[in-house]
Structures are given as C-alpha cells and as structure tokens.
C-alpha cells in the first residue's frame, strides 16, 4: 500500500521540533520511522505532518556520569549496540537489542522511538521499566523527567504530552551486586515475542535480595509483577505457585501470537529460565 499524503518538516533543533508539534496536533514525530512508516504504508495512520528529528545532534549522543548512562532518543539501535559505555556498563542491552527485528531495521530504528511508541510486544519498553530508568521529555515548559514505571498507561498510550518530545533515557548504572537478565520466547528470530521477561535482580549473601520482574508481549503494556517477585524472594521458584501468583496479579491478553493462557504458562517458564541464568 502507498502512504497517504502528508507534509514533511525537518526540525533544526529540539526547540524547533517542539514548537512545530505544539502548533499542529495532527503532526507526529519521525525518528527512525521503522514503526511509523509501516503504519503509514498500510494506511493505518494519516498524520498531517511528519516532524523529522533524526538528525538533531543533541539527540544523538550517549553519555555517562558516575551514576547514570544517558542515551539520546535518536540514537539508533545499532549505534547503541556498538557504543563503548553500553558494552562496558550495560551489556545486557545489547542482548536485548539483538532480539529487536533484524540488522537493517536496527540500523534505522531509534532507542527513543521504540520507547515512545510503546508496542506491548516490544523489548525496550519492558527494559526501561525493569531497569528503573527515567524518561526525559522536553516541552514548551522545559524539561520533565518521569519514571519509566509511570510512563506507560495503556495500549500505545504513554505520558508524552502534546507539546513534548522524548529526548533522552537515563539508566542508573548497575550496582556491583545487581544484574538485569532477559529472555523471550519467539517463533522466528526477530519476531515479536510470544512472551518475554526482563528481570532486575540484586543478590545479597547468595540469595535474591531484590527482584523486579517485568513481562512483555503479555498485555497492553509492560507488566510489572511485584507480588510475584516478592513471592520468589521469599519462597523461591515453584511452577504452580509462580503461575498462580502471576495469574492473580496480572491480566494477560491474547494476541495473534499466543493466547492468554499460553502467555501465562510461558511467563512462568521464562521466570524460571532467568532465575536459572542467574545461578550460572
């Protein structure tokens, strides 16, 4: 299918983009375009204008200070995967990104784009929530920071306001006893997962001291399983117990890939898999 007609505007700076976006509520942000353009090509979307932010320099950096790594929203997945700070301090993100589509998509798709889009079956939204990252937005009123766990409201619904652009994601550098683990179950490499999990784990005296399980491809947004995490810290992993706890805590939804019951089962299996990963 061919895209419907729209206007194109290449933003010269973040401020420029914000100004344009605020003036035209039917305009959308174009970063990598790897989710937006397929939607346009299928005529699922008819924006008035595309505001291209992919070349704004301030959005294309990865920096680090003592406590955080900052990934600019227009950095491509490939660039993230080749970045020294990520290799040294957040290598699990590379494993996660290896599961995102395929190389040619990763060469264009952006970190911020994926997080702002919030596809429930995507890896990055769950990753930012599990990593306790902060989302940095900029709007007419200046900079605003929001916790990733407060960012996703529903199906493709995020906290981004009409005048705002996601500019940066701020990841806390992992403590020495902390690890982020990730796994997903898929039919074909690069597909949306049937179910996936990102787990933020802290170990103390060889036992799990802190656990945050976040599931994806299971509902309308990343699903944080707080009670399940607490149960595992207390009692360890048991298939039936964990499955029941997840069932009571979260409402999984069927999609074309797998039905809710299957996702529940897979989420339980995945939980065990990441815990086993941690043991090695």
């Amino acid at each position: 299918m061919k895209s419907p007609d729209f206007c194109y505007y290449e933003a010269l700076s973040i401020e420029d983009a914000i100004k344009f976006k605020s003036n035209d509520l039917e305009a959308v942000i174009l970063a990598g375009g790897q989710s937006l353009i397929p939607a346009l090509n299928m005529r699922l979307s008819s924006p008035s204008c595309l505001i291209d932010i992919s070349k704004i320099k301030e959005l294309k950096n990865i920096t680090k200070d003592n406590n955080f790594i900052y990934i600019g929203s227009a950095v491509t997945h490939s660039e993230v995967m080749q970045n020294k700070f990520i290799i040294d301090h957040l290598p699990v993100l590379i494993d996660v990104l290896n599961m995102v589509a395929h190389p040619a998509i990763r060469n264009k798709g952006t970190h911020g784009g994926s997080i702002a889009y919030g596809d429930p079956a995507a890896e990055l939204p769950a990753f930012v929530v599990a990593a306790n990252a902060e989302i940095i937005l900029m709007g007419l009123n200046g900079i605003r920071t929001i916790q990733a766990s407060d960012f996703y409201h529903g199906l493709f619904e995020t906290d981004i306001q009409d005048d705002e652009i996601l500019t940066c994601i701020k990841y806390p550098i992992l403590k020495n006893n902390q690890e982020i683990l990730f796994d997903e179950i898929y039919r074909r490499h690069g597909d949306y997962a049937m179910a996936g999990v990102v787990a933020n784990i802290e170990i103390l005296n060889n036992k799990i001291d802190n656990l945050k399980l976040v599931f994806f491809a299971t509902g309308t947004k990343p699903e944080v399983a707080l009670k399940t995490s607490e149960l595992i810290i207390k009692d360890g992993y048991d298939y039936s117990n964990v499955k029941n706890m997840i069932k009571n805590e979260l409402d999984f939804e069927s999609d074309l890939n797998s039905n809710a019951e299957m996702k529940l089962h897979l989420a339980t299996i995945l939980t065990n898999k990441v815990l086993k990963l941690m043991e090695t």
Partner: peptide, 16 residues
C-alpha cells in the same frame, strides 16, 4: 483474515 501481513503470517525464515 487477521494475519494478512508478513509480520503476522509466519513464513519460514533462515534462522529456524
């Protein structure tokens, strides 16, 4: 038909 796209209709790809 609910899966009339290359993402949802699963054709064999190289990895599997």
């Amino acid at each position: 038909m609910q899966n009339a796209t290359m993402a949802d209709y699963l054709v064999p790809m190289a990895c599997e």
